[in-house]
Simulated scan of single mutants.
Amino acid sequence: CRFRAPANGRYKPTCYEHAANCYTHAFLIVPAIVGSALLHRLSDDCWEKITAWIYGMGLCALFIVSTVFHIVSWKKSHLRTVEHCFHMCDRMVIYFFIAASYAPWLNLRELGPLASHMRWFIWLMAAGGTIYVFLYHEKYKVVELFFYLTMGFSPALVVTSMNNTDGLQELAYGGLIYCLGVVFFKSDGIIPFAHAIWHLFVATAAAVHYYAIWKYLYRSPTDFIRHL
């Protein structure tokens, strides 16, 4: 039988769901590393390299931490303290992943005087989210989801005000995919393999955003081949 997770607790996945949760992010670790290295290789200057490094670290950390947490949860469920620690890390890294995903757009596109403050404010929000998880982990799930969505949408208001709007359509598509995936994120115990399906939505949205960053903020593939 399947049961919904208790109000202040987590749903206990089946063995097959544990496996799906692990593999749906584990298989993305190497592509994330390769993709990050590619952006670094395509960078024209130091600022682009730093931005590629920030974005790449956020992307790789998301998949690595998620995979490690799900492996610990699956194979080492008797180590409750370790599992709890990695679950907190899994939640915390989402805030930094959101900030890192916006970093290329905020760092490499021209912004207005007020909009430019979002470059540092988004990291302040990530730090605030981390503190919240540390203090109230799993206590107020709706509040935590609200924080994720707020952090995801707030910088979008700044990004859409840029003079150069190339790539914003893909950015919006990726955001929409994330939002649709939230339905599965909140459906553990209701929809079979809900969390693994959520992982697939995350992977798809991240791929769309990566494509936009690669295409509109870094060199074209023909330029890359020419400089090899």
Rank of each mutant, 00 (worst) to 15 (best):
A5L: 00
A5S: 06
P6V: 14
G9P: 00
G9H: 01
G9I: 02
Y11N: 01
H18F: 00
H18P: 02
A20V: 02
A20T: 00
A20N: 00
A20H: 00
A26K: 01
P31Q: 01
A32C: 01
I33T: 12
V34R: 11
G35Y: 11
A37I: 10
H40R: 02
R41K: 11
S43V: 04
S43H: 02
D44Y: 10
D45F: 06
W47D: 11
T51A: 08
T51I: 08
T51E: 03
W53Q: 05
Y55Q: 15
G56Y: 10
F63T: 11
I64Q: 07
T67A: 04
F69P: 05
H70Q: 07
I71F: 15
V72M: 14
K75L: 14
S77F: 06
H78N: 13
L79R: 15
R80M: 13
T81K: 15
T81H: 13
F86G: 02
F86T: 01
R91T: 14
M92R: 10
M92H: 08
V93A: 06
V93F: 14
Y95M: 04
F97R: 02
S101N: 07
A103P: 03
P104T: 04
R109P: 06
R109Y: 05
L111D: 05
L111H: 05
L111Y: 00
G112S: 05
P113T: 03
P113G: 04
L114F: 13
S116H: 01
S116R: 02
W120I: 01
F121A: 08
F121C: 07
I122T: 06
I122A: 02
I122M: 05
A126P: 04
G128I: 02
G129P: 00
T130C: 04
Y132G: 00
F134C: 00
F134D: 03
Y136F: 13
E138D: 04
Y140N: 09
K141I: 12
K141H: 10
V142T: 09
V142A: 13
V143M: 00
E144V: 07
F147K: 09
M151P: 07
G152F: 10
G152I: 03
V158K: 08
V158M: 04
V159S: 05
S161G: 08
N163G: 15
T165Y: 10
Q169N: 14
Q169H: 12
L171R: 01
Y173Q: 09
G174R: 03
G174Y: 06
G175A: 13
Y178L: 12
L180T: 03
G181K: 14
G181W: 13
V182H: 13
V183G: 12
F185D: 07
D188W: 06
I191K: 00
W198H: 06
W198D: 03
L200N: 04
L200Q: 05
A206I: 06
A207D: 12
W214F: 15
Y216W: 14
L217D: 12
L217G: 07
Y218V: 09
R219M: 12
S220I: 14
P221K: 12
P221R: 15
D223M: 11
D223I: 08
